[in-house]
């Protein structure tokens, strides 16, 4: 069974939420600053998606509590992730076909 966190544990969570908030704000500033460097498109996409992935992981791990969740949710999300990756790869594979 899921143990209910105590008030002290929740207070610890709150401190984590505030640190995550600061990290998210800092990464937002970084991603905008990088866009002003006008990097080559390939690099710009890689850096922007890398930062967005870190930010997304912070939100999912801490705000959505995925860092300590039940297995059935992990399995559900693993399946979702596989289908999501297929969706992202599909259009680019079509692109290569046309180039051939």
């Amino acid at each position: 069974m899921h143990e209910q966190p105590t008030v002290d544990e929740i207070k610890k969570h709150v401190r984590t939420y505030i640190m995550v908030f600061v990290a998210l704000m800092a990464l937002t500033v970084v991603t905008v600053a990088v866009s002003y460097l006008h990097l080559p498109v390939g690099w710009a996409i890689a850096v922007a998606l890398f930062i967005a992935t870190i930010k997304g992981s912070l939100v999912a791990s801490y705000f959505m509590h995925l860092i300590s969740e039940r297995k059935v949710i992990y399995y559900t999300l693993l399946l979702t992730l596989i289908f999501f990756v297929v969706l992202m790869v599909l259009p680019t594979s079509g692109y290569h076909d046309r180039l051939m």
Binding site: T31, V41, I45, A52, F63
Partner: peptide, 22 residues
């Protein structure tokens, strides 16, 4: 309700760089 709301935030975290910064 929070899980849904964080998801909406998460989508925006990707939309912002993809549409505005690239």
């Amino acid at each position: 309700a929070g899980l849904y709301w964080h998801f909406v935030d998460l989508v925006w975290i990707f939309l912002f760089p993809v549409l505005y910064l690239l």
